[in-house]
């Protein structure tokens, strides 16, 4: 780190003058170094092949900035590339808007942008344009990040909630609720014998492998805020179907399960950042699961539910004792500011 930079962020770092130039040249640009940023232009000029493009944006306000298994930097990359992946797109380029709070230690900023770059490399995307602003102390939680992303769609499948049909099955690529509980436990100072680590991870590779193998994917959805239940209620409503989940089949890490029991949270409403559901025709469940299980992010992939016709859109859960209950969207803020 250059000696000419102070130990903490000041308002001058967002002022457009010499200090801001120093921050960008000495801290941020070297980390993300690529031809688009080297051009020092107002916008990145991208060469794109003909075809369909997916485009999305998301803002990240998680508190604390660093948590077991990740931080706001990696989250800001994975969250956005996963939204692209859920459209069946291969993520290509990201933008990055940083809103820094006066007083943020420079060392923290360095760690977090390095984490962003590591995550971007893992996800196979380039961070090609960005912006930095500074707000007064007390007006932010250290650092907020907005990322937007574009991805290319190289197949003919139409992947959308409205494509879900009776006879489809619901597959999930791993255990539920890790990210939300990882953030919750560190924020509330709860200590478990086995620490819970966030599951944040880039999902495009696994998703595109399913598509490349010829699996007729009807719908994909990453299980972020609101968890599995909220994602599937939305799909059931859009497709006007009844989705039945089998509680016994739902994969939960024992510590996550114990923490949810302890705190009175429903793991079906807790966020993940590296999990998704794939809705595929029942006859393709086996090859889809076999393929998912060969990938490190799908080793625990499992079938958790079925889609049937319905007059009224519905998500229900068959309990271990064989009864059934309706599942709703998460209500209110179970876990404030987790992504």
């Amino acid at each position: 780190m250059s000696a000419s930079l102070p130990a903490t962020i000041t308002l001058a770092h967002g002022g457009g003058g010499r200090q801001m130039h120093q921050l960008l040249e000495q801290i941020i640009l070297p980390v993300f170094s690529n031809p688009w940023l080297e051009a020092r232009h107002d916008a990145a000029v991208l060469e794109l092949p003909a075809g369909r493009l997916a485009f999305t944006t998301d803002s990240y306000v998680v508190r604390p900035l660093e948590f077991p298994g990740g931080d706001i930097g990696s989250l800001a990359v994975y969250g956005t590339v996963n939204d692209l992946a859920m459209c069946g797109a291969r993520p290509q380029y990201l933008s990055c808007g940083l809103i820094l709070e006066e007083g943020l230690p420079l060392a923290t900023l360095v760690r977090l942008v390095q984490s962003m770059q590591t995550a971007a490399q893992r996800a196979g995307v380039q961070l090609v344009t960005g912006d930095t602003k500074v707000v007064e102390q007390g007006q932010g939680d250290g650092l907020y990040i907005n990322t937007a992303g574009v991805g290319l769609i190289n197949h003919a499948l139409d992947i959308a909630p409205a494509r879900v049909r009776p006879g489809d099955v619901v597959l999930v690529n791993g255990d539920l609720g890790r990210h939300g509980m990882a953030v919750m436990t560190v924020r509330e100072g709860l200590n478990f014998e086995t620490p819970i680590e966030s599951d944040a991870a880039p999902l495009a590779d696994l998703v595109l492998a399913l598509i490349a193998a010829g699996i007729e994917v009807h719908c994909l959805r990453d299980l972020t805020r609101g968890g599995l239940a909220s994602a599937l209620v939305e799909i059931a409503e859009t497709a006007q179907v009844h989705i039945r989940l089998d509680e016994k089949a739902l994969p939960l890490h024992p510590t996550v399960r114990a923490a949810c029991e302890l705190l009175g949270l429903d793991p079906l409403h807790v966020a993940c950042e590296g999990r998704f559901v794939a809705l595929v025709p029942a006859d393709q469940a086996r090859p889809a699961l076999e393929l998912m299980r060969t990938h490190p992010l799908g080793a625990q992939a499992v079938l958790v539910g079925q889609v049937s016709p319905a007059e009224t859109a519905l998500l229900t859960l068959t309990t271990p004792i064989g009864t059934s209950r309706r599942l709703e969207r998460a209500s209110g803020e179970q876990l404030p500011r987790i992504c």
Partner: peptide, 10 residues
């Protein structure tokens, strides 16, 4: 009852 009410047929 609000959170867990079941579909009419069940």
């Amino acid at each position: 009852y609000y959170h867990y009410h079941r579909q009419a047929d069940a």
